[in-house]
Amino acid sequence: MACFLVPATEAIVTTIVAKAVKSHEAKTEEQTKVKALSEDKLPLSKKITRLSGFLWGGSGLLAFEHLWHGEISPFFPFLTAANDPSEMAVAFHEMATVGTSMAVLVTAVWAVLTVVSDKILKRKPKKTAKLGGDAV
């Protein structure tokens, strides 16, 4: 009914956090004159921006799905369930269970991706294949 509101709220928070971290990184970079972006590590702001990308993209398309099913409307109070208190209780329950699980799973997938991408960046480049040798 309104499960997408939980990841959408997380998306708003992560966008604000990413902007704050980016400005902090720029300040630190200016003070120390050392570039925050090193070859083997992504800046934290970029990592958080990726998470907000997943959250905005996913909750945006889910909002469209809810509009399709008539669960939200473009006019106030926006949630169709808001007209009935008993339906609103169901919507809150769905937000607490399905919505929270969605936000947690997206964040977990992002965390795994972040760890993997850090490992890929740390990986030493492979030696180029020998030319002319080892032909089977």
Binding site: G53, F54, W56, G57, G58, G60, L61, L62, M102, V106
Partner: peptide, 10 residues
């Protein structure tokens, strides 16, 4: 981002 995000949520 959009399709993976939505796929995970669905």
């Amino acid at each position: 981002y959009m399709y993976w995000g939505a796929s995970i949520m669905w």
